[in-house]
């Protein structure tokens, strides 16, 4: 089943001559590793240059801040990676995050002593519902993913405003037990960071070792073939939207825990772009079938490190957006060039 990830996926079939398929697979797998290594080098380069120039970068407190910053991104990007692997996209994640943050925040105003698992469950449940609507539209409504989730992006954001009446959730509304989630606990890491790492690991295991996970790759690399093999493409795509929605809802609660403020206009607005950026920088192909969680983790880490490095080294925050855009372009362009070279190399040796 591995070959979904390495050989046949993404690569147009006519490029891989049967006799060399094994070699192509090996080259491809090598490339994936090379790519992840490249990201690690990029992250290290950013980290080292910043650490040399400003001493406050390499402190425990700052590293913790980076981890806190990327944990929201990592959570939502884990779901997004699954959606994108099936050759779909979920643009509504930022709105789902905002919706869950606002609804949960307002619940906490009236029920300040809710237990943390219950709060998190509520957020995830809301997200699950939102994801179910997305999934139903895409899987059974035959609405193209871009359109369906572009629509729900605006609808869910509108619901945030309707529900909140334009009021924001203020720090005094967020109870202490929830704030603790974003404060250092065991191992010196905030529970929120551990949750994100745990979810990402679970996502990695699902994608790599389970039948459902492999089916996600198969559907993304060749939907027709997957259907002929008897895979229930609709059901699996629906599932990826459920996961993406639930994780976004979950992240909405953590957003409230991290920032203690949920503003209906700004909570999660534009977050979908960062999430997709992390996914794409991590090497998951927007055309589906290729990529995975380790890359997404590195993509999120690179984005988080750059943002933090800019802040720490006193570069104006105005540079962040342009640099993020350039990083996205550089990552996908380098990816494309390497793949083409590899394809040419394989064809040449055949």
């Amino acid at each position: 089943m591995r070959r979904d990830e390495a050989g046949a996926a993404g690569q147009p079939l006519h490029l891989t001559v049967p006799r060399t398929e094994g070699r192509a697979r090996a080259i491809n797998r090598g490339l994936a590793r090379f790519r992840d290594l490249g990201l690690v080098v990029a992250i290290a380069a950013v980290a080292i240059t910043t650490a040399v120039r400003s001493p406050q970068f390499a402190t425990a407190a700052n590293l913790q801040r980076i981890m806190l910053d990327i944990s929201l991104l990592l959570l939502v990007a884990t779901g997004q990676t699954m959606v994108v692997l099936t050759r779909n996209i979920d643009l509504s994640v930022g709105s789902v995050l905002g919706l869950s943050g606002i609804v949960v925040g307002f619940m906490l105003k009236s029920h300040p002593d809710m237990a943390v698992p219950a709060i998190l469950g509520l957020g995830a449940g809301l997200g699950l519902l939102a994801g179910a609507i997305n999934g139903a539209l895409v899987s059974w409504g035959r609405v193209p993913a871009v359109i369906a989730t572009l629509g729900t992006l605006t609808v869910y954001r509108g619901l945030v405003f309707i529900f909140s009446g334009g009021q924001q959730v203020n720090p005094q509304d967020v109870p202490r037990q929830l704030l603790q989630v974003a404060r250092p606990g065991q191992l010196g890491l905030p529970p929120m960071v551990l949750m994100a790492l745990l979810v990402a690991t679970a996502g990695w295991v699902v994608l790599r070792y389970t039948r459902t996970g492999r089916a996600m790759y198969a559907i993304g690399s060749n939907p027709d073939a997957a259907r002929m093999r008897g895979l229930q493409a609709g059901r699996i795509v629906f599932l990826t939207y459920l996961i993406s929605g639930a994780l976004s809802g979950f992240a909405g609660v953590l957003y409230a825990a991290r920032f203690a403020t949920v503003n209906p206009a700004s909570a999660g607005t534009g977050f979908e772009l960062q999430v997709i950026a992390a996914t794409v920088i991590g090497g998951t192909s927007i055309l589906g079938g290729r990529g995975g969680i380790p890359g997404t983790f590195l993509g999120a880490l690179l984005l988080g490190t750059i943002a933090n490095a800019l802040a720490v080294s006193g570069v104006s925050g105005f540079w962040q957006r342009a640099i993020e855009g350039a990083v996205i372009l550089a990552a996908v362009a380098v990816d494309a060039v390497i793949r083409r070279q590899a394809a040419r190399g394989v064809a040449g040796r055949a």
């Binding site: 772009l273 794409v280 105005f318 342009a322």
Partner: peptide, 18 residues
């Protein structure tokens, strides 16, 4: 680079505004 326009313009959307 044989890239889908969705990804390219996602990048330039951030880049140009940035």
């Amino acid at each position: 680079f044989r890239l889908p326009a969705l990804v390219v313009t996602l990048g330039t959307m951030a880049l140009y505004r940035g």
